[in-house]
C-alpha cells in the first residue's frame, strides 16, 4: 500500500487493509463510503447494482474506479454524489454526512460526468467558470485570480473569451475540467475525462490533472476505460465486479503481483495438439496459435518453468523467440475480473 490509502473492501469481505500508511495523519479523509448498497426493481427482478461497498479516499489522492460494464461503477459514483439514493450505507465528504447535511457535504464537490458536455457551449470559457463558480456557492469575483491561474495552467488563457462551442474537442474537455475546479472544489469526480481525445491532448490533460492534484491538494475519484490514464494519474485503483470491490491497491502493487514476471515463448513446432497439452501445465497462463506455429505465456518465476523447458527439449522443440513480458494494468484487470478488458 502506498501513502494515502486506507481501509477498503466490500461488506462481508472487507479487505481491511491497514489504515493510512503515512501522509494523511489524523486528517479527516476526503471521502468515506461505508456499506453502500443500492438495488433496483423488486421481487425476483431485483438487481443489486452496488453491494455493500466501503471505501475511504484520503485527501490529496487520486483513486481510479474500474470495472466491466454493469459492475456498478456509475451507480456507486452517482450514489456518492447524491444523484441516486442508496438503500443502505453512509457517505461522508470531508467529514460531513451527506445524508444529514447534503448542502454542506456537497459544497466542496463537483463532477465531470459527461465528458465534454459538462458546461454551456454558448457561453465563453470564462463565463462558464464564473457561472459554475457561483452555482458552487462561491462569489465569482473572489476567485477571478484562481480562474486566471486555471486557464493559464490548462493552456486556455488565450481562449478565455471564446465560446466553448468554437473550441476543439480537447479544449472543450479542458474547459470542463476548469469549470469543475472553478468554484474551488476539493473533492472531484471525473468520468472518462480523456474520452475522445487524441493521444497528445490526452497526455497533456493527464499531466495537468496530476499537477493540479498536487498543487490544489485535490481528492479525485476517476473512472476511465483508458488504462494509460489510470496508470498515469491514479495513486490507487479500485476494481469493481458485480457491485462489489474485488481489488483495491496501489497501481504499483497491482502491477507487481507474485506472478507479474512472465515469459513469452514462440516456436514453429507449437501446433494445436502441443499447445493444448501445454495449456494444461501449471505455470502456463496462456496459449495462442500463430500463422507459423504458436505462442505460450508462462510465469517466469514458477518451478514449472524448468520442467517445461526440459519437456520441450525432450520433444526436440526448438524455440524461435523467448522474451520477457511486462505486465500492465490491463492484464491485472483481466486477471482479476476474468473479462476481456475494462469498459467505460
Amino acid at each position: 500500500m502506498t501513502a494515502g490509502e486506507s481501509v477498503v473492501g466490500t461488506g462481508e469481505s472487507t479487505a481491511a487493509a491497514d489504515t493510512t500508511a503515512s501522509g494523511a495523519g489524523d486528517a479527516e479523509p476526503g471521502l468515506v463510503v461505508d456499506g453502500l448498497r443500492k438495488t433496483f426493481g423488486s421481487g425476483p427482478d431485483t438487481v443489486t447494482a452496488v453491494d455493500g461497498v466501503s471505501l475511504t479516499v484520503d485527501r490529496g489522492s487520486v483513486v481510479g474506479v474500474l470495472g466491466p460494464n454493469g459492475a456498478g461503477k456509475t451507480t456507486l459514483i452517482k450514489s456518492i454524489l447524491g444523484m441516486v439514493y442508496p438503500d443502505e450505507g453512509e457517505v461522508r465528504i470531508d467529514g460531513v454526512d451527506a445524508r444529514e447535511s447534503p448542502r454542506s457535504a456537497y459544497a466542496g464537490v463537483d463532477a465531470m460526468l459527461e465528458g465534454a458536455r459538462n458546461d454551456y457551449w454558448r457561453l465563453t470559457v470564462r463565463e462558464n467558470l464564473r457561472y459554475f463558480a457561483t452555482i458552487s456557492g462561491v462569489a465569482p469575483d473572489s476567485v477571478a485570480a484562481r480562474h486566471d491561474r486555471l486557464l493559464d495552467r490548462l493552456g486556455l488563457a488565450e481562449k478565455a473569451d471564446v465560446a466553448v462551442r468554437d473550441l476543439s474537442r480537447g479544449m472543450k474537455q479542458k474547459v470542463s475540467l476548469a469549470s469543475v475546479l472553478a468554484g474551488g472544489a476539493t473533492v472531484v469526480f471525473l468520468d472518462e475525462p480523456t474520452l475522445g481525445l487524441d493521444v497528445e491532448s490526452s497526455r497533456t490533460l493527464q499531466r495537468e490533472l496530476r499537477r493540479l492534484v498536487a498543487e490544489e491538494d485535490l481528492t479525485v475519484v476517476l473512472s476511465s476505460h483508458d488504462m494509460d490514464v489510470v496508470e498515469t494519474v491514479c495513486d490507487r485503483v479500485v476494481i469493481m465486479s458485480e457491485g462489489r470491490i474485488v481489488a483495491d491497491d496501489s497501481v504499483d502493487a497491482l502491477l507487481r503481483t507474485d506472478d507479474s514476471h512472465r515469459l513469452e515463448l514462440t516456436s514453429p513446432a507449437f501446433d494445436d495438439g502441443l499447445l493444448g497439452a501445454l495449456a494444461e501445465r501449471d505455470g502456463v497462463v496462456g496459449t495462442a496459435s500463430l500463422d507459423r506455429g504458436g505462442r505460450i505465456e508462462l510465469r517466469a518465476d514458477s518451478e514449472e518453468l524448468y520442467a517445461l523447458m526440459a519437456a520441450l527439449d525432450d520433444r526436440g522443440v526448438a524455440l524461435e523467440t523467448v522474451r520477457s513480458v511486462e505486465r500492465d494494468l490491463e492484464d491485472a484487470f483481466v486477471d482479476i475480473t476474468g473479462t476481456g478488458g475494462p469498459e467505460p
Partner: peptide
C-alpha cells in the same frame, strides 16, 4: 439533461429546486 449540466445543478449548495 442533454447537455450534462443537470447534475452540477443538483449538487449545488443552494439546492436543486431553488436554482
Amino acid at each position: 439533461v442533454q447537455w450534462g449540466t443537470l447534475e452540477r445543478h443538483v449538487m449545488t449548495p443552494f439546492g436543486f429546486a431553488p436554482v
